[in-house]
């Protein structure tokens, strides 16, 4: 008394991952690394928008949500940058070229690349928060004429923790892009800023009345960054943040990522700040 089906591998079930091959393992900083992935199926490509994430599965260990940090114009080369923080990401660090990894996605909302057209763009990144913003930077640099002044404000722990440092230096010299970096602590060899990233908001050249801001980092950092942007005169309706919550499915069915009525995995992770402002200050929501 049962209907039985033979389910083809990966057929139309959003919980079933697609196999990808690790093409490159890139050590970024002491505790971060990037994985470059290619699909098993050469005809497959994962089209994504800046700010979206994938669920990455390591055989037998588990699955975690990781934002996509590569170039959306090159969907065949899927790049994720992550920090070693848990069991799965530590297992990922052990992956080598040729290893298989499971990918589900892309999921979630994206940075407002369309809405930002014709305006100044301020990207505020804290720590690993630069990774989900990098696709937005690639996008802007490929379509540089679409945007006004573009400023990246990036705060991290120490000079050794600066992500994508070579790339940032290259962009700074080759493109019309202002890059401000600040670190929490440094020795005297460091020639740059020391202080919190929020302080850079006051210094950066952009027109607050004509700016779209994209903010990504730890929640407390985002809170203070938004306050600084607002103080400078950027309306909260022009500020976007990327939220982090526990995610087990990525498709709004497991319940874990709820922030009151929001399923952060599908209604977010990128939110226009005024849409979630009341939820931002409420404790343990």
């Amino acid at each position: 008394m049962a209907t039985s089906i033979e389910r083809a591998v990966g057929a139309a079930d959003p919980m079933v991952p697609a196999p990808y091959v690790v093409e490159r393992f890139i050590r970024e900083t002491q505790d971060t690394f990037s994985l470059e992935l290619e699909p098993f199926d050469p005809s497959a490509e994962l089209r994504f928008l800046p700010g979206q994430f994938n669920m990455l599965y390591v055989f037998g260990v588990g699955e975690v949500p990781i934002s996509i940090s590569g170039d959306a114009a090159e969907p065949k080369k899927l790049v994720h940058t992550t920090r070693e923080v848990g069991v799965v990401t530590r297992a990922m660090r052990g992956l080598k070229p040729g290893h298989t990894i499971g990918v589900r996605g892309p999921f979630g909302t994206s940075w407002p690349m369309e809405a930002a057209k014709g305006h100044d763009v301020v990207l505020v990144a804290g720590g690993i928060g630069l990774a989900p913003l990098r696709p937005a930077l690639y996008w802007i640099l490929r379509n540089r004429d679409d945007y006004g002044k573009v400023v990246l404000l990036y705060g991290t722990r120490s000079p050794e923790d600066i992500l994508y440092s070579k790339e940032l230096a290259k962009w700074r010299s080759q493109f019309d892009l202002e890059v401000y970096i600040t670190v929490d602590r440094a020795t005297s060899e460091w020639r740059g800023n020391v202080g919190v990233v929020t302080k850079l908001v006051g210094r950066a050249p952009f027109d607050p009345a004509d700016t779209v801001a994209m903010v990504c980092g730890p929640e407390i950092m985002m809170r203070f960054a938004v306050e600084e942007l607002a103080r400078r005169g950027v309306p909260t309706s022009d500020i976007y943040v990327s939220m982090e919550r526990n995610m087990k499915c990525g498709i709004g069915l497991c319940g874990h990522c709820q922030l009151r009525g929001e399923f952060v995995c599908k209604d977010g992770p990128v939110y226009r700040f005024d849409a979630i402002e009341p939820l931002f200050m409420e404790r343990e929501l």
């Binding site: 804290g126 720590g127 991290t156 722990r157 602590r185 919190v196 929020t198 980092g217 950092m221 203070f224």
Partner: peptide, 9 residues
Amino acid sequence: LRMLDLYGN
């Protein structure tokens, strides 16, 4: 904010 070491493990 820096004391919280937000970006660290």
